[in-house]
Amino acid sequence: MKKLINDPADVLKEALQGVAAAHADRLTVLTEPNIIIRADAPVQGKVALVSGGGAGHEPLHGGFVGMGMLDAACPGEVFTSPTPDQMLAADKAVNGGAGVLHIVKNYTGDVLNFEMAAELAGAEDIEVEAVVIDDDVAVKDSLYTAGRRGVGATVLAEKICGAAAEQGKSLAEVAELCRRVNANARSMGMALTSCTVPAAGKPTFELGAAEMEIGVGIHGEPGRERKALAPVHEVVEMLAAPIVDDLPFASGDRVLAFVNSMGGTPLIELYIVYNELNQFLSARGIEVSRNLIGPYITSLEMQGCSITLLKLDDEMTALWDAPVNTTGLRWGA
């Protein structure tokens, strides 16, 4: 394992210390329990947005704390769900009297811990609503699994709902919007290499030099299938076709196209992916009216990418364009 770390046991702690040192103007980092909150929290009268999950997906979620997005993020250990005491501390720190929305990626650990946290917050008279994001079409959604994983749509939901909260929407309205974003978004990812969890010290899975994993999750979970490496044109087809078939997206739709790096794939390759995706969608009459390209929901140093498509309406488009000022995403402010 080659990593720029001091000790595997100190990765989260030292990274949070770095965040605190770098961004004290915008963020407050608390320990015991670990939470990252807006420096100006609580914002009185505004619905507060709290998310969280295992570390290792940076900039998600801590990099999206700030004006126009999240009020707090709860980081767990690398790829391990945070605990309810963190979420409760975050809820208390950011609740401005208008309630708190929990945005939860659909992983059993995250869901159960956020459920317990919502009960604890309720016992302290903090109004909490939770929305579970489950946009990964690589996983079969059936009664016999834990359901689809929450991946790229999480970033889009945090941005769009953060803007709505900033505009003074109620908790019920922001939660409903969040469900609408989730219902209109689909994602799928792929990996060229594995990633190495610092505490494990060895790659999560093995991929041959000429292989790729299609449908991989953001923790290196197995995907739909392992295939021989193929040109980008074909890889984009393998990811985008299941996405547009699933909702389905149709000719005339306007979409936000999000091409995300799993951490190890450089921007130059993401633009090649985006170019292929744009052509794929154009050929089906689907108009890309907004895009996001870069490493926003990563899987440590894994090479690979994911594609997320969100079917936009006018309200979502306007909220996407609204000002945001976080360390991971910033425009208009």
């Binding site: 329990p33 767990g76 250990e77 391990t80 769900s81 945070p82 605990t83 309810p84 005491d85 059993t108 650990g109 159960l112 811990n113 459920e115 317990m116």
Partner: peptide
């Protein structure tokens, strides 16, 4: 257990 285990086991054994 709820505050130290994490994952799914923390809430389940905690509960």
């Amino acid at each position: 257990l709820v505050s130290t285990v994490g994952g799914a086991s923390g809430p389940l054994y905690g509960t």
